[in-house]
Write a protein that binds this DNA or RNA. Structure first.
Lengths: 213, 213
DNA sequence: ATCAGACTCACACAATTGTGTGATGCGGCC
DNA sequence: GGCCGCATCACACAATTGTGTGAGTCTGAT
């Protein structure tokens, strides 16, 4: 039988080595390459065929979300499994919208991971079990929620988050984006609600957890 | 020859599995156990002898710094290697003061890691190479610096950081710690300088990078 | 015994953040 | 053609944060 061609992208060499060691033990998997960030992963994809891309959400240069969007466009058949530490709902919906096939937590076991890769290769959606619960929860919690239970965070808002993370004041952000401070304040206000936090500190914490920054 | 008894503590199962797979290949190492947080690691240490403890800095329940301090007190001969993603100076000094033997970045290679464990077992201090550079840099940069180039962040200050991260106001933090708001403000002020940030947002970002929270 | 560092507090003031409310233009969708 | 989400802006006010400066205890190390 054909082996499943796997590409690993993670910025931590130890993680890459570890994943390689784990996956190498399975006869039906073939690790064809590794990458230290999303950009490298895309480069690799252009050169060699890959079945499943194992992608860390938090990476420098190009993060998982961005990589997913680009990769899906260029390689529609590629299956992408997100590997993260985060267990929040909001970002997951964004990821699936972007075209991710799976979403596994780093505290899943190696067996779960291997099974996930195989499932993804067969076209199944893969989600860490305790996450599915979370998603169902968030849907049943709010009666009105049909599918967009969690408000989507917009592109502009993400820009604002990133600038806040750079320790800029509202004034400085406004200058940078060529808008008024009022506008920035409104974005922040909306972000607080969407992200369910009380202030910028909470926002940045969550944003880091989510891999937005 | 006696094998080196290694205990792995990391909250991500995948990481544990990965490290196990990597280290298992080396004949001179023996992974005697694993733990999902610092507390579990300490429990294990009470029951079985361990030579080297591989410790993730960022963990729930009990983080690496706290674990190190406890472990050193109870098991003075134990070698502790910190495994982190962070490459900042300040926290390193704190860790060595607490009794860590080594400090490796997660983007070190597997060979480097294995060598590090062996070195640590022989009593050598182990630091990721590009970190030593950083430390030397920080010493030579500031002419006056003799050894304490980077100011130590105190226990109390870390408490404050953690509470800020929980989105508490200065007032709430003061209540929680039974001190005045002025005191909390002073701690924050000092933290900004020590951590070289402009505001709470920057502080929390850095604190997360450093694994303080 | 002395000294440095940690922890505490005060007071005053400037700067920023966060909130409440309301409103407009624009593009996509059914 | 109308509705909705996104992005924009205003204005006013309350709440918090950040800064400057000075100072008193207590403890551990030299």
């Amino acid at each position: 039988m054909e082996k499943i061609k796997v590409l690993i992208a993670d910025d931590h060499q130890i993680m890459v080595d570890g994943l390689k060691a784990i996956l190498a033990k399975d006869r039906s998997l073939d690790i064809v390459g590794t990458a230290g960030n999303g950009l490298e992963a895309l480069e690799f994809l252009k050169k060699e065929p890959v079945d499943v891309l194992l992608l860390d959400l938090q990476m420098p240069v190009m993060d998982g979300l961005e990589t997913t969007m680009h990769a899906r466009k260029a390689f529609p058949d590629l299956k992408i499994i997100m590997l993260t530490t985060n267990d929040e709902g909001s970002i997951i919906t964004s990821l699936f919208k972007a075209g991710a096939t799976g979403y596994l937590l780093k505290n899943a076991s190696k067996d779960y991971l291997i099974q996930g890769i195989k499932d993804a290769h067969e076209g199944k959606k893969v989600i860490s079990s305790h996450l599915t619960e979370k998603m169902i929860e968030s849907l049943t919690d709010h009666p009105k929620a049909k599918e967009g239970a969690i408000p989507m965070i917009t592109k502009r808002e993400i820009e604002v988050v990133k600038l806040i993370a750079q320790e800029l004041t509202t004034q400085e952000i406004a200058d940078q984006l060529f808008v008024s401070t009022n506008t920035v304040a409104t974005h922040k206000r909306n972000l607080f609600v969407k992200m369910e936090v009380k202030n910028s500190v909470g926002m940045i914490k969550k944003a880091m957890d989510w891999g937005i920054i």
